[in-house]
Design a binder for these strands. Structure first.
Length: 427
DNA sequence: TCTGGGGTCCTAGGACCC
DNA sequence: TCTGGGGTCCTAGGACCC
């Protein structure tokens, strides 16, 4: 198993969401900045200055008030349209430097450097870093090593160490074990909170100790996934570069409510809105869904009422991406399962069994071809209008117009790069 | 009535990721 | 008062079959 003579680079954008906000608002430079999750719930990105103030990842937003008053902390709601667009620009820039690129997340990419082993990889990476910053305004860090897991370790140190200045090559490095020793076990890629707890009770606290742990014991305790992590720390590459990721297997639209929902009518509005949007997502990627999970629940953090959740899976007669089918099913589930007397905090739909539109199997009782064409045409027209004039310009009546339950976004920046009405203005 | 292993498929839940 | 959303993979267990 594994291949020991590979070289991976991990490119990671520094404090990505905060950096995006700064590109279009340079006055934020040197100020502490945080970006909040959907619904302005908790912190999902922090500038270095905000980290220095001791603000933690995941900190609930209501705890930030003091920082705002005392330290001029700047708070932004998340603006995923902007971040998605900036991400594409960064990835395009990286693609100039290697054909073997795996876009791992909105702000990370793995590059295969195996073919470049005769180059000075540090110098090459510095060049990449400089170009990305010049073209996009986003600062990045690059870690280089013989496995993806080790490249992650290298990247973390590249980002934090003042000596590395954003680039660290651990291939054939005498400092590899030192780097592992200085990495907490919980910071290793693939080691989550439950694994960390187990390891710490066995006095395994850093990545070097994990590297040298008995592999049979790991296999027994954490299965093949845990074993892969340990092998990767030992320089055996088990997780390959995936340039062409499989097409999505599920897609979800779930939201917490800005204000709790207590009536069936409001729940149906919310679920209609999510189901409609889920249909849009399917059509954007030319997919259809065979089934849909519909769920809603009370808040987990609420101490005055017990936690309860409701949900069910709907199997469609034949796969669909018509928002009206999804909305109807979602409303029916709500009607069947709703119980009054609860403060609902979250709801959503998850689409499963995704297949390309073209491969659709015709079921015995398929809608007539005429019906299908008409449905496609209606959806196309709605999608075009909403693309041109903004999401939810037109929608189905069942989605409601008051939307008191809609999530909060009190500190949102404009969509500078993707909406003509929100371009930055030079005055 | 008794006897048994082995295989597949599906689902729910756990763990992890960003 | 106020704590996100969207994914993937693996595993165990049940149903069912031979």
């Amino acid at each position: 198993m594994g291949n020991s003579n590979k070289i991976f680079a991990l490119v990671d954008c520094n404090n990505f969401y905060c950096s995006c906000e700064r590109v279009f608002n340079p006055s934020l430079k040197n100020l502490p900045v945080v970006v909040l999750s959907n619904n302005d719930g908790c912190v999902v990105a922090r500038s270095n200055e905000a980290k220095a103030l001791g603000i933690k990842m995941g900190e609930p937003a209501f705890k930030l008030r003091d920082f705002r008053e005392k330290y001029n902390l700047v708070i932004h709601s998340s603006n995923y349209t902007l971040y998605g667009d900036m991400s594409q620009r960064v990835m395009q820039c990286l693609a100039e430097y290697t054909p073997c690129l795996e876009i791992y997340s909105i702000d990370e990419a793995f590059l295969d450097f195996t073919g470049f082993r005769n180059k000075d990889l540090t110098a090459y990476s510095r060049e990449i870093k400089q170009k990305v910053e010049q073209y996009t305004g986003i600062p990045i860090s690059i870690g280089i090593a013989t496995t993806k897991t080790l490249a992650k370790v290298a990247n973390r140190i590249a980002k934090k160490s003042s000596k590395a200045k954003g680039v660290l090559d651990l291939v054939d490095s005498p400092y590899l074990d030192l780097a592992l020793q200085r990495t907490d076990v919980g910071d290793v890629w693939g080691v989550g909170s439950s694994f960390t707890k187990l390891l710490e009770t066995h006095n395994i606290n850093n990545a070097l100790q994990l590297k040298n742990t008995d592999q049979k014991w790991i296999r027994r305790e954490r299965g093949i996934v845990g074993l892969r992590t340990v092998l990767e720390l030992n320089g055996t590459s088990c997780i390959p570069l995936e340039e062409m990721p499989d097409s999505k297997k599920s897609t979800a639209v779930t939201r917490s409510f800005g204000k709790t929902v207590e009536t069936l009518a409001e729940l149906q509005e919310a679920l209609s809105t999510y189901a409609y949007r889920a249909g849009e997502k399917l059509r954007e990627s030319k997919l259809e869904a065979a089934s849909m999970v519909v769920f809603f629940r009370t808040g987990i953090h609420n101490k005055t009422q017990p936690y309860r959740s409701w949900g069910t899976t709907v199997n469609f007669f034949s796969s669909t991406n018509d928002s009206r089918d999804l909305v109807t099913a979602a409303r029916n589930v709500a009607e069947n399962l709703f119980e009054s007397g609860y403060k609902l905090k979250k709801a959503g739909v998850i689409l499963l069994g995704l297949t390309p539109e073209a491969e659709k199997q015709l079921s015995l009782f398929e809608k007539s071809q005429q019906d299908k064409t008409r449905s496609q045409q209606l959806m196309q027209v709605m999608d075009r209008i909403n693309n041109r004039y903004g999401r939810e310009t037109i929608q189905l009546a069942s989605s409601g117009i008051g939307k008191k339950w809609q999530m909060k976004a009190d500190y949102k920046s404009p969509s500078y790069t993707t909406d003509w009405n929100q371009l930055p203005v030079v005055t």
